[in-house]
Design a protein around this nucleic acid. Structure first.
Lengths: 215, 215
DNA sequence: TGTACATCAGTGAACGCGCGTTCACTGATGTAC
DNA sequence: TGTACATCAGTGAACGCGCGTTCACTGATGTAC
């Protein structure tokens, strides 16, 4: 056998280069760069192609960023799916936090992208991410509606609660990706606080009077 | 009388230029730029001085950023002080949100700086801001300890609660500064949700069993 | 108060560099017959 | 299967531009006597 010939067909090579460009950005973000400070040339260089090749795949860095928004939220939705299935009622919170931390560990770059670029100056990407977070929150609200205690809550109140939980999640992710990689102690501490905050929040639920508007 | 002679003494002129540089950055952030994308030259230009004059005041853009961290947190502490005084117990939450929104309106640029740069790629500024937020959270925890319901809580639990409240505050500020300036309807909606979230959180407080470690 | 010198905020020219984008191109893969 | 042509991912040279930083400077304000 000779050396493995990578990417036999044109389509394969094309997909491969495109992913290399996306990954180059994620890698630079993980290394602490700001998205707005990344140059098209540095990304092309890191992906192993000439700057002009970039344009075969994306019209601009913003367009590449939008592709990363999609890719990242595919990860976040997968997480929600995992949570939907893996939640024995008696330890919802503990397992939720575990699933979150697990996903952050395995898709660190996607989470960094979302929490960091979601607050960046770049208005296009910021709005794209905030829009996705709103959708994500709505999905969570729908999931919450299935819990017996929450069945009678109004949509508005469910959104409010989901928003609160997502805020906690975002703050937790922010703290996690800010801590040194693979610092189990710091990570455990962050998870512990997050679980407490979620437990406190859920403690309020049975006492909330969610008022349906008169029919 | 002739035209007003601004900044008679050297010290005055110096202070004036320094502030013009800081304000130039805040203005560009408000206009939607990312801190990491700002150039020393564009800042000097906006402040009305030649690029080299910049160095008379700051060693680098990072140094200027750290000065802005200080300036911004002076604003946030002033807010906490206002809250400490202006809170009739029967409407703590309503007033807190009002005070927050009021301060965001009046120091929009400082809040933009904190929520945006606190998540940026720039590691120096991000850590500086996150450190200040941690201090800010601790101060809030101390204030919380004065409420009768919370008097028996452990320090760790107070920190946890303060963190939760600060998270809500940060998310609220993020949503506010992301909305178009002077959109009273959007702002009112954001404030309404924030108040609900804080009310829900505080609803849990009497039901939380804060366990002191055995003496 | 007057003079001589020191300080120092701001100037302006110059540098080398990496940037985004254009253009005409190459050569391997794909396709029609 | 073989041939002739089309497609198109990636190349490489070139452009004008704004960048951060250096340097020697200017001239108004400050200070010592």
């Amino acid at each position: 056998m000779g050396p493995v010939r990578p990417a036999r067909t044109q389509a394969e090579r094309r997909r491969h280069t495109r992913q290399a460009l996306l990954d180059a950005v994620l890698l630079q973000l993980e290394a602490g760069e700001s998205f707005d400070a990344l140059s098209l040339r540095s990304v092309a260089r890191a992906a192993g192609v000439v700057p002009t090749a970039f344009y075969r795949h994306f019209e601009s860095m913003d367009a590449l960023g939008l592709a990363l928004v999609e890719e990242s939220f595919r990860t976040l939705r997968a997480m929600l799916r995992d949570a939907r299935e893996g939640l024995p009622p008696e330890q919802v919170i503990h397992r939720s936090v575990e699933i979150l931390m697990e996903h952050v560990r395995q898709h660190r770059a996607h989470f960094i992208f979302v929490v960091r670029v979601g607050y960046t100056g770049n208005v296009v990407l910021r709005h794209a991410i905030r829009g996705e977070i709103r959708l994500f929150t709505s999905e969570l609200a729908t999931d919450l509606a299935r819990f017996p205690v929450l069945r009678e809550w109004t949509t508005d109140d469910l959104q409010m609660l989901a928003g609160l939980l997502v805020n906690t999640m975002i703050a937790t992710v922010g703290a996690t990706v800010d801590a040194p990689v693979a610092a189990p102690a710091a990570e455990a501490e962050i998870a512990r606080v997050a679980a407490k905050q979620l437990r406190l929040t859920m403690l309020a639920v049975p006492h909330w009077r969610s008022e349906r508007s008169p029919r």
